[in-house]
């Protein structure tokens, strides 16, 4: 055993040999992350608007946010892919199940981001728009939302980094994403250190790129204020 450990030598050549698999996985990861972010951007806004309606309707939005933020992605995936599938016969394929899970979780986070951004808009803006004769919807679409969007965008992009990272969990239900391909290659070559280090590096690069994008976007959107 000791001899075996001492004899362990790094063999990074397995990585380029597996490049095609990793690339295929990476494309699936990117596709899942983009789909999830697109759906949660829309759903999050809807939930935020429901949340801000006074009375029992607003309460529904509140409960949605509380419950859907409280679950971990792993539990979501198990519940949606195995639990709901067995109980009501809604048999989602792994990729849709993963996207639905990511969307439910992240739409709740994004709803809170939207809400705080919309509430950050000075009430005077709304009042001024209304007194100029714009309707409720016109005020929101033309006056409030364009301003709130600028405030929300950097946080929303940061949420995108979380989606990228969380998406690695969908490998557990057999989505052929980057993590899944990596695990497959690990069991093929028995090189866990090399593969997991590489995949950590790939995720890190994706997250850093998106985070830099968010930072640049933030500066750009604040330019007119300076």
């Amino acid at each position: 055993m000791t001899a075996l450990l001492l004899a362990y030598s790094y063999d990074w050549s397995v990585i380029p040999r597996s490049a095609a698999f990793l690339e295929r996985g990476l494309l699936v990861t990117i596709r899942i992350a983009l789909l999830s972010v697109a759906f949660s951007l829309v759903l999050g806004l809807v939930v935020a608007l429901i949340r801000m309606v006074p009375g029992p309707i607003g309460l529904i939005g509140f409960l949605y946010i509380q419950v859907f933020r409280a679950l971990s992605l792993y539990v979501y995936i198990l519940f949606i892919y195995f639990g709901i599938a067995a109980a009501i016969g809604l048999n989602l394929d792994p990729i849709p199940a993963g996207v639905v899970s990511l969307t439910l979780l992240n739409s709740a986070y994004m709803a809170e981001i939207y809400r705080s951004a919309i509430q950050a808009i000075d009430p005077g803006q709304r009042e001024a728009a209304r007194s100029l004769g714009l309707g409720g919807i016109g005020t929101f679409v033309n006056v409030v939302f364009p301003q709130a969007w600028r405030i929300a965008l950097p946080s929303l992009v940061n949420q995108f980094t979380d989606i990228i990272k969380d998406s690695s969990v969908v490998a557990l239900i057999g989505v052929p994403d980057l993590m899944y391909q990596t695990i497959e290659r690990v069991s093929f070559y028995h090189r866990p250190f090399e593969f997991y280090t590489t995949v950590a590096g790939i995720y890190l690069v994706m997250v850093v790129i998106v985070a830099q994008l968010a930072a640049r976007l933030e500066r750009r959107l604040q330019r007119h204020l300076a």
Binding site: I164, S168, P192, A200
Partner: peptide, 21 residues
């Protein structure tokens, strides 16, 4: 902050164990 929790977990549990003993 940039490495997913799941990746970190398997890296520590399988990867590091394999390389360092």
């Amino acid at each position: 902050r940039g490495v997913p929790l799941y990746v970190m977990l398997v890296w520590i549990y399988f990867g590091v164990a394999n390389i360092t003993g």
